[in-house]
Design a binder for these strands. Structure first.
Lengths: 190, 190
DNA sequence: TGTACATCAGTGAACGCGCGTTCACTGATGTAC
DNA sequence: TGTACATCAGTGAACGCGCGTTCACTGATGTAC
């Protein structure tokens, strides 16, 4: 039966958040709409009352996940600037906890190459989210020229994403830990 | 009908190479066995004469792709050592040509997060291939202590993989180019 | 070296299954008067 | 403010399709003698 506007909005949000979690945990292609709808507490038939296609949900789920990441990054850096802000970010992002819980972490590291094959809507969301994330890191380095700060932030993000991706991909725990350690050491001097 | 041993071995190799290309270009999950077998010039029914499962093919395709990458890296660095070797590698790996042809390039950047969700067989192949690749870079820095050279190589690889992944994921060509440029600049001083 | 036959690479059809998407239906919401 | 009714969120079954895997069959290869 019909639901109130408030209920409808809450349902929609629940679907996006369930999708955001499952896409990051299991991959976009490997996650079906039925599984997402079950996780959101519904049957799968109702999906198309909220979204025109799975692709649209992918774009919104990416948006939700990357916004959550940006808020986490802001919180983690707190009021710090310079090296202290960078160190706080590295300790949080390159942590075993993050490595072991892709579903709640960075969407770029979790969906990686799948985003490059997504539709234009999703890839536009990736561009926007990535730039915003880089800028929110760059503004913690007020002593740098802004173009340099942004370039440094972009590089640091790419290196962190690559390191987390590879730390998850290898099956040797010692190698995985040394990947994270190596990235932390090299990026700490930025 | 039955084929000679030489023909059988060639067929098997053709399947692995077709899979290696398609998995990198379109993703593991998104590539079906029928498409791979067609690319190898056969019907899909014959697949199980060569492999016990798709998972086994994934592991071998990853092995083939990463071995090809290592050979390319060796060739590109040529007889150089130190900064010159690094610069040659960066120019080759972080090039627009590599960015635009994932099917012929680095399997870590192309399959990224999918490898983290692959079976233990494939993830073991990832570990081995990643270490061998890092070592073949590390040995070009004879002036460094070997543990430092390996840590530096691991970091450089992760940063390159992350940069290439993000350069492919964003849809803004200028942003994509600036990601590659930023990674090149930062890694050149290693 | 020649022959008889078991092996097995490849074909093409079929299997059950889960995918994204559609649709008839239900009944509470929200609007028009 | 009260009532009549159009709207539409959610259900559950169904759609065509492609997936990984299996299998009966064909006939050249390679082995045993």
């Amino acid at each position: 039966m019909k639901r109130s506007k408030a209920e409808t909005a809450e349902t929609r949000k629940r679907i996006v958040e369930a999708a955001s979690h499952l896409f990051r945990r299991d991959g976009i292609h490997a996650t079906g709409l039925a599984e997402i709808m079950t996780a959101a507490g519904m049957t799968h038939g109702g999906f198309y009352r909220h979204f025109p296609s799975k692709d649209q949900l992918v774009a919104e789920a990416l948006g939700a996940g990357s916004q959550a990441l940006r808020l986490t990054v802001q919180t983690v850096m707190g009021g710090r600037t310079g090296r202290r802000a960078v160190q706080a970010l590295l300790d949080n992002y390159l942590a075993p906890k993050h490595k072991d819980h892709p579903g709640d972490g960075c969407p770029f590291a979790a969906m990686g190459a799948e985003l490059a094959r997504a539709d234009s809507n999703t890839r536009a969301a990736v561009s926007g989210a990535f730039v915003r994330l880089a800028d929110s890191i760059a503004e913690r380095a007020p002593e740098k020229k802004s173009s340099v700060a942004r370039s440094d932030a972009i590089f640091m993000l790419c290196a962190m994403i690559g390191a987390l991706t590879m730390a998850r991909a290898v099956d040797d725990p010692k190698l995985s830990a040394s990947i994270l350690r190596s990235a932390k050491q090299h990026l700490a001097d930025s």
